[in-house]
Design a protein around this nucleic acid. Structure first.
Length: 303
DNA sequence: CCCCAGGCACATT
DNA sequence: AATGTGCATGGG
């Protein structure tokens, strides 16, 4: 299947989008990207002006374009954000990065696992979870595993989850099982969250799911629940803000960030409110661009 | 040995 | 409301 991405509104850098750290399980192999969407193993290769898609099972064109958020007019989003001249410089250096529309369940578990960890390790933990609890899928010579459903995690033994290499062992294993139970019981309904306003959905997520605080909630809301105004702030984004936007921020706040980028709740709130005021409805896009910019600026991405 | 990574929950003040 | 502390993996 070919999906045209030939117009500026549909611009995409597939490699950048899949490897920038918003999603953890895509693998590049032989010039193509492999990942699972539901039970289907998908292979995507970017060609001139289009994406070439193959899959282990029949898949709709709309499933792919929906996942890649090709419905977002990237050109107009970036031009709206670029009224800020600082951002326009960042956007000049980072082109074709799109927010994905991930599966909320997988996104929830992924970001529970992400806390105070690093991308290479998050990837390993999630792959271990999929290998133990997911299903094997193959496409040609390539093999991958699906992300387990909540029912499969509800049945999982704590010790097996801990064995997947979680950063905070038992604590996170319990958080993951707790989340699975909430979803299975229907107490956590992602479609309801999608219909809520950003602040309501955030409050709901944090109060319901152990292991989900401000940062993790913002990631889930941005990457899987249609809240493009969400602005997750990790140590990197905090640094980017302190570097690029210090003139808008309290001097002591900037100093606190630069000396210790782990934010207190109060500072998280301050920065996050500034970001949504400053960037507006597409703050989440601004966040991803800043995140990628600061990481490639200072350090070689830990791939 | 040190430091740090897409932080959170809970206690203390 | 603000700050401090435990958590407890793995790589540089």
């Amino acid at each position: 299947m070919k999906i045209s991405v030939n117009s500026p509104s549909k611009a995409i850098d597939l490699t950048l989008t899949l490897s920038c750290g918003q999603v953890f399980r895509w693998v590049q192999y032989g010039g193509s990207w492999f990942g699972t969407l539901g039970k289907t193993l998908v292979k995507i290769r970017q060609r001139k002006g289009y994406l070439d898609v193959q899959s282990s099972h029949p898949i709709l064109r709309s499933t792919i374009s929906n996942y890649l958020r090709l419905d977002d007019d990237l050109e107009s989003i970036i031009s709206e954000l670029s009224e800020d001249t600082v951002f326009s410089q960042v956007a000049y250096e980072v082109r074709g990065l799109r927010i994905l529309r991930q599966d909320p369940w997988e996104c929830l578990i992924s970001y529970i696992c992400s806390r105070n960890s690093r991308i290479s390790m998050i990837r390993r933990v999630l792959n271990n979870i999929c290998q133990r609890f997911g299903e094997k899928v193959t496409l040609g010579e390539y093999t991958n595993y699906t992300f387990p459903r909540p029912e499969e995690i509800v049945e999982a033994k704590l010790s097996e989850l801990i064995g997947c290499g979680l950063r905070y062992g038992r604590v996170q294993a319990e958080e993951i099982k707790n989340a699975a139970e909430l979803v299975q019981k229907g107490a956590l309904d992602f479609n309801v969250l999608k219909r809520m306003s950003y602040p309501e959905a955030k409050t709901k997520l944090i109060s319901l799911c152990r292991g989900v605080g401000s940062k993790v909630a913002d990631c889930i809301l941005l990457f899987s629940l249609e809240k493009i105004e969400a602005f997750p702030i990790d140590v990197w984004v905090a640094r980017a803000m302190a570097t690029l936007y210090h003139k808008y921020l309290d001097k002591r706040l900037v100093k606190r960030i630069l000396s210790n980028p782990h934010l207190s709740n109060a500072d998280y709130e301050r920065l996050s409110r500034f970001a949504r005021d400053h960037f507006g409805r597409y703050a989440g896009y601004a966040q991803e661009y800043l995140y990628h910019w600061i990481r490639t600026k200072n350090v070689e991405c830990d791939a």
